[in-house]
Design a protein around this nucleic acid. Structure first.
Lengths: 233, 233
DNA sequence: GAAGATACGGAGGCACCCTCCGTTTAACAA
DNA sequence: TTGTTAAACGGAGGGTGCCTCCGTATCTTC
């Protein structure tokens, strides 16, 4: 199952880095084969199309065929279905992650979180396959495919932390919690009206996340809340 | 695909009712065959075991085998996988539904809703297969398998209505919204710690649902009208 | 007990999964 | 250029599951 015998292959964003094994010193840095690179790209392209059209359950053989590649080749590049998912949606996940980075500088941390979540919904609406896919990957408990999940957790975590530190948000919620809730709500997209529904739910959610001035008698520092609490939308 | 030529079969909770067709008057009410009834029950029993163990994707052939029944028999009784789901979890859904009925008499309507949701989590924890199953049924947009979904919508709706009418909860959330959110959150059960996480999230959620009393005591009386008018949808 | 309605079961055709391995091809060295 | 060899290719093949179809068995009714 290892593509290279004496070496491990680590794959970062777009490039492929070869780490030379210690046991046999055949050669230093053999350039990756051109056909391999090409095929990998083709498979990704095809997968994106096929998954977006047919959902994450779509046939891998269809992907291979669309890519003009043998099924064996597909499996060599992406040993599991989730590996393929991961690769397909990596870019999207990174975009979301970067958005969080930007929002970190917003004034109101609660609003920043809210906006991030809303953008997430937007994303899901566009990249049809994404949520179901990631949800599936997460659900199957596959530790190794946690790239996206971890990345998003970090993203959401930074927003969350900031809001908590600012005293605007309850502190007993973890980024994982929040991500789970978010994914969950989006999971049933493709029913009519899902998008509006999810946006409503997210609003409720964020409202619920605020430190409640009533409950905690002293936490009145978070006055600015009032403005947003008003019930927008 | 119709089991009886000149008659339609309507299946309510546990019994099978025969409605005589108009076109041919063969006989009035032929008793259902004993073996059919027996096999149906066997399949249900087996399905419950198999789904709870192997999740909703489990093989129907495994179910048939476990039931000691041919695959054809299984398909005759339950033409689609969702039909089988529906039948298997019907009882559970009804229990949840009844619980909502009882909670309608609670004093605090918001708390009633909260308790119902918590019970839902309990339920999910026990009946492993249920959520994934219903989620799948819902997601696949199968109009006909909406029994459970509708039942739960009604249940949750009655609790919601009461809270809204009492002015304790924002009025722009539909039962479907809420159910979606609930299912979504539960969807990723089987990760470690999911249950605690979902409970936390539900708390957040219910908090977010309350009409936010900036000044608690006095605003309560005035709120209801305002809240309900606010956003109809 | 016979007739006819009904239900049974599993073979069979199809689709997909994934692995294995003989063949091809690209990179490198001479 | 050409030879060598690691690496990649592709698809046959064995396995599993889905679902349908229809000859056979069984039940109800008269």
């Amino acid at each position: 199952m290892q593509p290279c015998k004496g070496s491990a292959r680590v794959q970062s964003n777009q490039f492929v880095i070869y780490i030379i094994g210690m046991d046999d010193h055949t050669d230093q840095t053999r350039k990756p084969r051109a056909d391999a690179v090409r095929n990998r790209e083709r498979v990704l392209e095809a997968a994106k199309l096929v998954f977006n059209a047919g959902g994450p359950e779509a046939s891998l053989e269809a992907v291979a065929k669309r890519a003009g590649v043998g099924i064996g080749t597909l499996y060599r590049h992406f040993p599991t279905r989730e590996d393929l998912f991961e690769a397909v949606y990596r870019r999207e996940v990174e975009q979301l992650s970067e958005l969080a980075e930007q929002l970190k500088n917003a004034k109101d941390p609660v609003d920043a979180l809210r906006r991030w979540l809303r953008s997430g919904v937007e994303f899901v609406a566009t990249k049809k396959g994404m949520v179901a896919t990631l949800a599936l990957a997460v659900q199957s408990g596959s530790e190794l495919h946690a790239f996206s999940f971890e990345r998003l957790t970090t993203a959401i975590g930074s927003l969350l932390d900031r809001a908590i530190t600012a005293g605007a948000m309850r502190a007993d919620i973890s980024p994982e919690d929040l991500l789970r809730a978010f994914f969950g709500m989006c999971y049933m997209h493709d029913q009519p009206g899902w998008q509006a529904s999810v946006l409503r739910m997210l609003d409720v959610f964020v409202d619920g996340l605020r430190v409640q001035p009533i409950a905690k008698g002293k936490a009145l520092a978070a006055k600015p809340a009032k403005a947003t609490v008003k019930r927008k939308r």
